[in-house]
Amino acid sequence: MPIGAVIEFTSITKKFGQVTAVNDLSFTVEPGRVTGFLGPNGAGKTTTLRMLLGLVAPTSGTATFGGLRYRDLPRPLHTVGAALEAASFHPGRTAAHHLGVYTIAAGLPRTRVVEVLHTVGLAEHANQRVGSYSLGMRQRLGLAYSLLGDPGVLVLDEPINGLDPEGIKWIRGFLSSMAAEGRTVLVSSHLLSEVQQSVDDVIIIAKGELVHSGPLSSLDTNIAPQVIVDSPNRDALIMALTDAGVPFTSGRTGLIVAVPDPGRVGHIAFTAGVELNVLHRQKAGLEDSFLALVEGGDSL
């Protein structure tokens, strides 16, 4: 069974001319867990992963697998399997030939081609030219490439993009089983909800900087609960809240008050003589936490 290595980013920075795409990013990814690498589009996820894989040279800092940079790995495909975007194929080559080329380059047995195509469910399309593949099939082929060397580390950039619901369900189970075998699994996505069900840890970046890292559950407590309140006489309620000096915003279903205790909001209304028809506490979801993190850009 392949053993996963720890992925370690140390102060990695990438500047494209004047633009800083990734700024002083440091975090580790542990084996035996699925780690979600999250951030909005353009946050620098792909650049970070490409630096990890030696495809993009960092301006400063390092990224290593068990202490070794990618290019110093003695047998890279045996150690790390990576699937980046879904377009790295010659359209005139068949899937089997595409994978065959890289088994030769990496000195892997040719039998791996059939095995990985079978794993990702493309066995019956093995001899079809990739040009005729759908986006979902290309995603699967990219994944097949990453599995060629039966690596202990998987690095997947937006692997769920373009998959059909059945494929999404399959890949979630697949990622979990890989981690359960002791492998290191790093999966990027711009949507938390896409990976929420399968990740153990999250690394969140925004504008090239780390905004949060920790277990998925740590996101839960990141945003203080709020109180939703409404009144048949909303203007009176607004006046009462303003007088009491509590911050609030107008929402679809009422006023969202930034205090954790509904009792206090009720008391404010009661003393002002305002009738209430809505008063409850709302706990922010993970997605709200995630959005607050990437939009605010502040570490909580």
Binding site: G54, L55, R71, A87, F89, H90, P91, Y102
Partner: peptide, 12 residues
Amino acid sequence: HQTLTPTFLATP
């Protein structure tokens, strides 16, 4: 065709 990516991953 961006095949430099799989190529350089197999042979860095």
